[in-house]
Structures are given as structure tokens and as C-alpha cells.
Write a protein that binds this DNA or RNA. Structure first.
Lengths: 243, 243
DNA sequence: AAAGTTTAGTGCTGTGGCGAACAGAAATCT
DNA sequence: AGATTTCTGTTCGCCACAGCACTAAACTTT
């Protein structure tokens, strides 16, 4: 897998011409852990295409009841709704893993959209995939237990991180999954005992990816398959062996 | 509230000219309880704008684990994804309440879209609202208990039905909410005891709508508010008194 | 070195919902 | 009229997770 220069897999599907134009109109920024890219209910003014690192999409209700509803790495983008003219974000976006992203002003981006039917089509496909992800998430969160969900989350993060390690405390994971911190401790402890992962004060280490896939719910695989279906040109993630 | 002729509130927002054109290109069909309008993963070839009655949108995973992810009455449509060029439905659509709908061939509909920027904009807004609904549903289904969720479901159905009664067995409700049949019996029994609803072998009767709103989770109100925000021209549902 | 903070492990009780099963009542079929 | 099916009520044991609290490390700050 090529790793330099970092590139966004969505944008890679554009023609060189369109790609150059977009890059010229955007700005490559650093994303740092915890950085708030967008608040719920606000117009953050930009769309982002991660080149490395990843962004967590969060929704919340009253009483600190929050949940993660999306994880965006260099296979996706933040701000799809802008492509259908909706600039108020219904969700919060926080940087989860350090990296860089192409930041483009919403206005510039939508202007760009008008010019490129390829880009339009790409955004439509990505939006559809996002809807499908959400649909599945409704089901997964309702039926599946903490351990498989945790495993799925780790797999998704692993795909988006650039190595086998990343930083995430139990507390953080708990707020992503919508469970108690001690439930995460329990589930992560189970994975630890099976030698699937290792962790220490927030540093999570994936030891056996194949085994992780086995304890994960099928939603992980199913959604990867959907991604292939809707965004077929994306290079698929290698998952059949331990990296 | 005017009730005749039955009309779809989305389409009502079009200009007379566009509206007439759409009606001419579509066909008014009868919808009957249980009728399968669209299968998961298939291209059903049509989009539908309910005029009366309502449609349930269902998703499922392995092992009969299914859930309702949408309820569409004359305030919405079935097949929004067609408006962004995605014709394979990620969900199943079943008629929940008898009525009529304007049925339009997908191809005709997308052709129509090209001609009318108003229609385009309308579809974009509706799609955004659909995404927001899904986002909330992820949270609601995860955190809220059966009784408030049941109440919310009844309210949504009440809004889309044309009276205070509709047909739905506990078993049916259970599959919508993703819980056991006996959990529904329990929750419905609680509402019965509070004289909020009455039911008998599938005939559900809403007795006290105000009280129903109080036992429902706030997601009902919150989503109605969002609907107003995104589709502001829709006449709002009267909810502050017992109808 | 001491004090404070962050992260993780553990142990209680309480409970909402599951799975499964049984029973009665009402409707429908033969 | 009797038999079958559909709908609802109820119970029992079980379990995953909630809520809460306390402890023990490990790292950070002063």
C-alpha cells in the first residue's frame, strides 16, 4: 500500500484536472487530537478531506447521551450535506487521530461542484453510502453487544490509522459506543485476555487483526462490502492477514 | 385541516406548473396493508408520494433482527435516494396504513428533476431531513426505553393516519421497535392503564394525544422541529390539544 | 518528594429487556 | 358446532448493562 504522498481516496477518483483544481482551491491543514472541526447545528464554513488521521462524527441528545455516528478517514470526507446545499451540520465533528486534511471553504466547494459532474456523482455516491452506514448503525447499536461493537470500532479505526497503534482511553471509547466506561474496561479486558489487543493508558495496540474481525459483529464486513459497491474504485482494505 | 382532495405536502410546495407535470407523469395507486413496495437491495423502479395512508421503511440484519428506520406519510416520499442517482434501495418498504399514493417511474422522475430546480431543492431538503432522522434514530433506539419509544411511534403514526384509530398488532409493533412481542404488550398495557390509548386485537385507538406526547421521548418533538426547519412550508401538525 | 490528575480494574445492587413457554379470549375456517 | 388460528396477557429465569463507588496504579505538575 502506498503511503506517501498521503492522499484522499475519494478525491483520487477525480480526473487530474479536477483534482488539481480542488487542491488549488483548498488548503492542507493539520488536524490534532481533540480539535473541534464542527459543532452541532452550526455552519462550520468548510468541508474536509482527510489525507491522514481521522475524524469522529458525534451526535448527542440531552443528558450527555451521545454516540458516534461516523468515523472519517482518508476514504471519506466531512461535510457531505454541503453537496446538497445543507450547510448546517446536524452533528459534531472532532479529530480522533492526528493527521492532515484538505480544507475547502463550503462556498468554493459548492462552486466547484457545479463545474464538475464527476465530483457531483462522487458526492452522491458517498452520500448514499453515508445513509446506508447510518441505517446499519441503527440496527447494530440496537442489537449487538458491547464486545463485538468495540471490536468493530477498533477495526474501523485501524483501517484509518496509519499503524497498529492509536491513542484512545476507555472513557473515550465509552462515549463513542454509548456505554459506561467500565463496560469498555470489561470488553477490552476480554480482548486483552485473548491476545487480540494490548493497551496501556490510552495506547491501544492491535495484535491480531484476523481474530479481531472474528469477534467483531458482521456489520464491519457488511459495510466494507457496501463501500465497495458504492465507491468501487477505492482500493480495498487488506483484512485477510495480520498486518 | 383540509382533507379533500388528499395531497402530498412535499409536492404541494411545487409550483402549479411543476405539480401538474408530475401528476401527469405519475399514476395514483391504491396502497394496501402489507403490500411490499420495495425490497432491500433491489431497484423497485418507482418513487412514491403518499396522498393518504403510510409506508414503513424497514432494515434488517441476519437472524430476523429487523427495525423500522422510517415512517412515510403524505409529508414525505419513498425513494429519495433516486434523486441522487442511487436506485438500489437499501431498505424494505411496506404499506402500514391503507391509502393512495402517486407512483412515478424512477426514470421519469429523474428526468423531471433535471427540469425543475425547485424539485431538486425540495428533494435535497427532504434527503437532509431523512439523514437527520436516521442520526437521531441511532441515538433514540440506543438510549430510550420501550414505552417512550412506543409512544413516539404511535404519535408518528397518528400524524400520518387520518383518524384516531389504526390497525397494528403487538407483534407488528414489536418488529418495528425491535423488541419482543410481550415487551410491547407490557408497554401498551401501561398506556392502556393510564387511559392514553385503547386497543383490541390490532385496532389501536388514541384517546389522549397530549398525554401520549408526555410519555413519549423528546425525539418526537425534536424531529418535528427539525422537519419545520428543513421543510418549513409544510403545515405543522396540531399537537397541543386532543383531536 | 509530594500532591494532584488521569487511566484502569473491580465490585456492588438494580433493572430493562430477552427467550421461552403457557393460557385464555376472540376471530376465522370447515 | 367444533377446530384452528390470531391476538393478547402473564410468568420465570437469565443476562447485559446501568449507576455508583472505591482502589490502585501511572503519569504530570509544583
Amino acid at each position: 500500500m502506498q503511503r506517501a504522498p498521503p492522499q484522499n481516496k475519494l478525491l483520487q477518483q477525480l480526473s487530474d484536472q479536477d483534482l488539481q483544481k480542488i487542491i488549488r482551491h483548498g488548503k492542507t491543514i493539520q488536524m490534532e487530537f481533540g480539535q473541534l472541526l464542527c459543532e452541532e447545528g452550526k455552519d462550520c464554513g468548510f468541508v474536509y478531506f482527510p489525507l491522514s488521521g481521522f475524524i469522529s462524527i458525534l451526535t448527542s441528545m440531552q443528558h450527555n447521551q451521545g454516540l458516534e455516528v461516523g468515523l472519517i478517514g482518508n476514504e471519506g470526507m466531512l461535510g457531505v450535506l454541503s453537496s446538497i446545499g445543507v450547510h448546517l451540520s446536524p452533528v459534531q465533528a472532532v479529530v480522533q487521530g492526528n493527521g492532515t486534511a484538505l480544507q475547502i471553504e463550503t462556498q468554493v466547494f459548492t462552486a466547484e461542484l457545479k463545474d464538475s459532474s464527476t465530483l457531483q456523482h462522487l458526492m452522491q455516491q458517498y452520500l448514499a453510502f453515508y445513509v446506508i452506514q447510518l441505517t446499519r448503525l441503527v440496527c447494530c447499536n440496537h442489537y449487538h453487544e458491547t464486545e463485538p461493537r468495540l471490536a468493530r470500532w477498533l477495526l474501523m479505526t485501524h483501517d484509518r490509522a496509519d499503524g497498529d497503534q492509536f491513542f484512545l482511553t476507555h472513557q473515550y471509547l465509552a462515549s463513542m459506543l454509548g456505554v459506561r466506561r467500565s463496560s469498555v474496561t470489561e470488553a477490552a479486558g476480554a480482548l486483552l485476555q485473548k491476545n487480540i489487543i494490548d493497551y496501556h493508558r490510552g495506547q491501544i495496540h492491535i495484535l491480531n487483526r484476523t481474530a479481531l474481525e472474528k469477534v467483531s459483529c458482521s456489520c464491519y464486513r457488511d459495510l466494507l462490502d457496501k463501500q465497495q459497491l458504492f465507491l468501487p474504485d477505492l482500493p480495498s482494505v487488506q483484512t485477510d492477514f495480520v498486518r
